[in-house]
Design a protein around this nucleic acid. Sequence first.
DNA 1: AATTTTAAATGTCAAAATGACAATTAATAA
DNA 2: TTATTAATTGTCATTTTGACATTTAAAATT
Lengths: 258, 258
Amino acid sequence: MTINNLFIFLYFRKKNKHSKELNHLIMIEYSGQPHYLVAVDCIVFGFDGEHLKILLVKRGLEPEINKWSLIGGFVGAQESPDDAANRVLKKNTGLEGIYLEQHQIYGEPNRDPIERTLSVGYFALIDINKYQTQINDDYHAEWFLINDRPKLIFDHEQMVIDARKKLRYKAALHPILFEMLPKKFTIPQLQILFEEVNDTKIDTRNFSRKISSTGLLIKLTEKDKSGSKKGAFYFKLDKKKYTANFQAFLNLIPNLKL
Amino acid sequence: MTINNLFIFLYFRKKNKHSKELNHLIMIEYSGQPHYLVAVDCIVFGFDGEHLKILLVKRGLEPEINKWSLIGGFVGAQESPDDAANRVLKKNTGLEGIYLEQHQIYGEPNRDPIERTLSVGYFALIDINKYQTQINDDYHAEWFLINDRPKLIFDHEQMVIDARKKLRYKAALHPILFEMLPKKFTIPQLQILFEEVNDTKIDTRNFSRKISSTGLLIKLTEKDKSGSKKGAFYFKLDKKKYTANFQAFLNLIPNLKL
DNA sequence: AATTTTAAATGTCAAAATGACAATTAATAA
DNA sequence: TTATTAATTGTCATTTTGACATTTAAAATT
């Protein structure tokens, strides 16, 4: 009998002094159940202005030590899975307040060869530039092109595939891709990001019309001259409208097939 | 040291005979982690032709025995959470092959007062008529109007709220509501279901135009005379198109706000 | 048998959104 | 001054949408 099970027993002894039957029932139904490790794994997406990337780390524990893996960790006793995901993200990127979304649970009995572990998959979107300023090599994290990533441990490969699909889905309906851009960005930059995520070319004219019609962008006076002679105007998000319209549909991808 | 932890130790003794350091690392990082119970809870939606309903059961174990709860159970050692959800659904409804979708994990440290338990929330859609033929009273399951349900245990109340929101979201984009209708159904029936789920009135003419334009329905020669003198034609799903277009957007709700 | 009743099915039209395509503009480089 | 390059803005036919009205089929009533 483990400590946990003992605790249950005492708890109901106290509450139900006169019911032996009840104590018995608890022991069967609740305490006899198997316990598992619970982990979180984060698929961290970034955008370098040209391509979609993911952040991977070299795993620091057995099994599969030194193999590339998603950023993850076990869920501690005093934290929720969401808490755990935020914690490991901060540990590995130095960033707080990252856009983080619970995605799917991975729970095949033998997905971890050592011991049964269920993993809650998250996907995270971060501004790659923010990260680079805070980079420290303590955790051997590294950005990879999404289409040129190393083999990953366990079922992490599947997690990346699933998360990418979900990112595409979500980004078609909600303005989440801004999370991967700097505060000031240009329309051409934004379009490249959409094209990368959806693996498609978008007509420049129709794209900017749709983006403008959302009313989410505020045009700045400054221009980004790095990409062309003419320069492209910077925009920033209208945060009030962003929050208010987050659930609104955008449909930025023509002839969308998911 | 529990049996599980011992197992890990031996596993790496064997694989890494010459590395004491490695064995040490495993014990810290892997075995020292807390283990939790993992459960599934299913929000089962049904439609009786007039109103949206959910299926609840009287809980058969402490704590909160005899209180109303979602259909749930612990994840067994040899099954995935998906397996577990299908198992408990079959046990409580007699039905197999139910539409089932992983929804969200509920993992606040103190959500279960006895012992830390994480629960994977699922939502399920079933044809309420199919169920009624197989009903047995062994598990005290009962249908409740979604808007007139009893108080639920733990965080099940929140689960229902979340699942309902998700159902609405999903149903706006994908043809999932057919899962709650009999094989033969009429357009007016379908419309009432959409109205129930979205808590709104839809214009009859525009609705049938949109539904027709999906190409998902096949008109039958038979009519349902129960609702009117004229009778409404039965339709059935074009299963090939249903499967092929499942991911396609429908946007059946005008002025949708999620 | 003709008429009434009821809900189902179909029709109209102006406004908005979409997709395909081309011309103009602002800045630097030659 | 001109050429070059990418950013920006524009046109138009087609489709989709939302608001609204009429017709139709069958049973019930007179």
